[in-house]
Amino acid sequence: MPEPIIQIEDVRKRFGRVEALRGVNLDVSEGEVVVIVGPSGSGKTTLLRCINRLEEYEEGTIIVDGMALDNTSNINAIRCEIGMVFQSFNLFAHLTALQNLTLAQCIVRKRSREDAEKVARALLEKVGIPEKANAHPAQLSGGQQQRVAIARALAMNPKIMLFDEPTSALDPEMIKEVLDVMATLAKEGMTMVVVSHEMGFARAAADRVIFMDEGLIVEQATPHDFFQNPREERTRLFLSKIIHL
């Protein structure tokens, strides 16, 4: 069996007096789609942000694609391999959609402008908005912005994609267009770690669902087992609160 592409070992992180992560262990294998759910303040976003070191952790080890994150010297090289999609999109506001996609390709991957634009246009096509190449972020709807943000991350040809509540800031009717793009990616075999409240997505696209609470992983299971017969009492309580039909 090949080595997991992400190995998280006993990671701890505190914000002042609050312990955000209290010893998390998690392995993700190549091509796996992992969805992390949990109540707010459970540490899921913090964990995700530790995987590309946007957040420093005090203890533990994270190894991504064979490279230990604790070694600061090559953090930029590791980040190239990890695409990140944010809740608030964070598109570069002064650049067009196309330029958002080409900037890092040119200065980090050192691609020529022509090559970068070719990649960018193909990706905008893929996320379904090729006609918005020259639009600025402020001219796009939330769903379109998030799709550009996904394309921007993909333009670096990452091995892993991290999604931090990618649909939480969207109007309901725009959620689907973003989830569709994510589902396509999952089908293509991209390794994905997704923090989300979209249980429908978790059920349909995830290989594994992880439930976090109070800085710990409480339960992990296949979507079927997770939703049909959760083992832990805490998980059942959580599911009963969010699934209301």
Binding site: N52, L54, N76, A77, R79, C80, I82, G83, M84, F86, S88, N90, L91, F92, A93, L103, A104, I107, V108, R109, A149, R152, A153, M156
Partner: peptide
């Protein structure tokens, strides 16, 4: 978030400052 997005794409601090 602008700085974070730039850093998450692998840009260095100064590249992110300069370009973003």
């Amino acid at each position: 978030g602008q700085m974070e997005a730039a850093r998450s794409l692998g840009m260095s601090y100064f590249q992110a400052m300069r370009h973003v």
